[in-house]
Nucleic acid binder design. Structure first.
Length: 279
DNA sequence: AAACAAGTCAACCGCGGGAAG
DNA sequence: CCTTCCCGCGGTTGACTTGTT
């Protein structure tokens, strides 16, 4: 009923993206903007399904993606957010602009959950374990003569089956571009890594539920929030003002959270704090 | 140096929600 | 309402990398 087959059913390309495919996708989105993922591949000349294009763009090609290691501050925030919200990766990612839900999810699964466990904390419930779990057999300890890699993957034990589910309203992504369906926005964002910093920057974006319009003027970049025009000295300021996390951004969240921890009726307030994150 | 185990992370899958008709 | 379609999310996979023996 009603569900279109995905790429696997219609012989489209799968697996790792080639530089050429990346370029095609970037160029198309530069020209037409995000959205209409289903029809995008055809129009962009890509032999990929829309889902694959969206994923590649969201997790890798977006110009506001923050590259590099996740800092300890960010890790700490992720852990605290996870304690409040559970595996709501997109919501957590929304509070760490520049980080993708996939990145945070991977980092949690590969680093943070193990670290918590080794510290004697259940990564699912964030409660103390009866006894700290030993770091799963010292790193890369030989286990010759047992299962091979593929089998290990297949037989991975499900340890999260008892995880309580949290039912909360759908989160609103903090940093994403909100577009009405079937409506693209005009965008000519310069991607310095691939196209060179040749100037032209103008893109509409939603920032804290306000529409912004970036413009490239003679003496720097400016953006509009509502009717008010704000000047930006250089491109890096865009990050600070809008999409990427700042020290202040993280600190503010910390403070907010720490204040709640100090109060008596913490559960009620933590709940409302969690709810506020959803707005 | 080779073989193997373990870690990492980009990409895929399937489901559910919501908008449009 | 109901059906269809699209999007976004979370869970999972598997290719590749890195460390150990």
């Amino acid at each position: 009923m009603g569900r279109a087959p995905c790429c696997s059913k219609v012989g489209l390309h799968r697996g790792p993206w080639t530089p050429r495919e990346d370029t095609l996708l970037i160029k198309y989105i530069e020209a037409r903007g995000e959205g209409n993922w289903r029809s995008l591949p055809k129009k962009a000349g890509l032999l990929r399904c829309g889902k694959s294009c969206r994923l590649r763009w969201m997790n890798y090609l977006r110009p506001d993606i923050k590259r590099g290691n996740i800092t300890s501050d960010e890790e700490d925030l992720i852990i605290r957010m996870h304690a409040l919200l559970g595996n709501r990766w997109s919501l957590i990612a929304g509070r760490l602009p520049g980080r993708t839900d996939n990145e945070i999810k991977n980092h949690w699964n590969t680093h943070l959950s193990k670290r918590l466990r080794s510290q004697g904390t259940d990564p699912n419930t964030h409660k103390k374990l009866a006894e700290p779990v030993q770091q799963e057999g010292n790193k890369r300890k030989s286990n010759k003569g047992t299962s091979n890699n593929k089998k290990r993957k297949k037989s991975k034990v499900k340890v999260e089956s008892l995880k309580p589910k949290i039912h909360l309203p759908k989160p609103v992504r903090f940093s994403s571009l909100a577009l009405p369906r079937n409506e693209s926005f005009e965008c000519n964002t310069s991607l310095s890594s691939s196209t060179g910093a040749d100037g032209g920057l103008s893109a509409d974006a939603v920032v804290d539920n306000s529409w912004c319009n970036f413009k490239d003027g003679d003496d720097g970049i400016s953006f509009l929030v509502g009717d008010v025009e704000h000047d930006i000295v250089d491109g890096t300021d865009i990050e600070c003002q809008t999409l990427l996390p700042t020290e202040n951004h993280l600190e503010k969240l910390y403070d907010e959270y720490l204040q709640l921890l100090k109060t008596d009726d913490d559960q009620v307030k933590l709940d409302s704090f969690a709810e506020s994150l959803l707005l």
